[in-house]
């Protein structure tokens, strides 16, 4: 089979970015996208904070909405202690959100589709929330694995279950984001490849028929936009939930 084939996974391939300097320090194309995401976030703050208007302009309103959204999420989920973790949650949320969003554009790398990236973020959240738990409660934090109001003979069964479910948190947190982003981008690539295959295989009729996968990709673009926001939100709210567990132990 000569002609086009579908390479749905090539888009996730890592190369070095930033020219020879990047090659020397293994600064990858995914790190370029991370740098772009971080730069956009800081630029949004820089522009949004320029006027400090009582009635905000567009960019200021955007940053304010983001700020209040994450702030309310922190305070509502964690409680008043959530204010301390707000900068952290905001950094994680905005970083993932911008990573998801710029990954949707052609030629931009979606770094949240790499399990190494999402697992590193999830492990950090997991270890940090565990550390907060021990810092707040000392060794009494281990009681978190002992559900209250349960007959004693069930505990040998329940404590391991609780412990395993606690340990599975970083896995589910990272795989959810990674799988969502990877699946979306693979489907895009597959449907786009369909158009090439149809045109190569069926000629003019194939070219006309490729309107169908094109339409599907348009619909997918809307879906992926939703997924990009939703998965960033899910990651952030789960981070808040884990911190809530660490602070309140229930």
């Amino acid at each position: 089979m000569a002609g086009p084939s579908i390479d749905a996974l090539g888009q996730f391939g890592l190369t070095t970015g930033l020219g020879p300097i990047g090659r020397a320090v293994n600064f990858t194309n995914s790190n370029e996208a991370m740098l772009a995401a971080a730069t956009i976030i800081v630029a949004l703050f820089a522009v949004g904070l320029k006027a400090r208007a009582l009635v905000p302009g567009r960019v200021q309103a955007l940053v304010e909405v983001l700020y209040e959204f994450v702030h309310n999420m922190c305070v509502d989920t964690i409680g008043e202690e959530g204010r301390r973790f707000f900068p952290l949650v905001f950094t994680i949320f905005s970083f993932i959100l911008l990573g998801n969003l710029i990954g949707l554009f052609p030629y931009f790398f979606a770094f949240t589709s790499h399990i190494a990236v999402t697992l590193a973020l999830a492990l950090f959240v997991f270890l940090f929330s565990t550390a907060v738990g021990f810092y707040t409660h000392g060794f009494r934090f281990l009681k978190f694995f002992v559900p209250s109001g349960v007959p004693g003979w069930l505990l040998p069964l329940l404590v391991p279950i609780e412990f395993i479910s606690y340990l599975s948190r970083p896995v589910s947190l990272s795989v959810r984001l990674f799988a969502n982003m990877t699946a979306g981008h693979v489907m895009w690539e597959v449907f786009a490849g369909f158009m090439l295959l149809l045109t190569a295989g069926l000629g003019v009729f194939g070219a006309i028929a490729s309107v169908v996968p094109l339409g599907l990709n348009v619909a997918l673009a809307a879906l992926e936009l939703l997924v990009a926001g939703l998965q960033a939100y899910v990651f952030a709210i789960l981070t808040c939930l884990y911190l809530h567990d660490a602070v309140h132990m229930h």
């Binding site: 990858t28 971080a38 976030i41 900068p87």
Partner: peptide, 25 residues
Amino acid sequence: LTLDQVGWMAVIIVVLYLVLSRWGL
């Protein structure tokens, strides 16, 4: 590169955290 990107991410996200927590937020 698979793991090296994580190291650079750590650098980028720490800088982003410092900028946001000290200035932006």
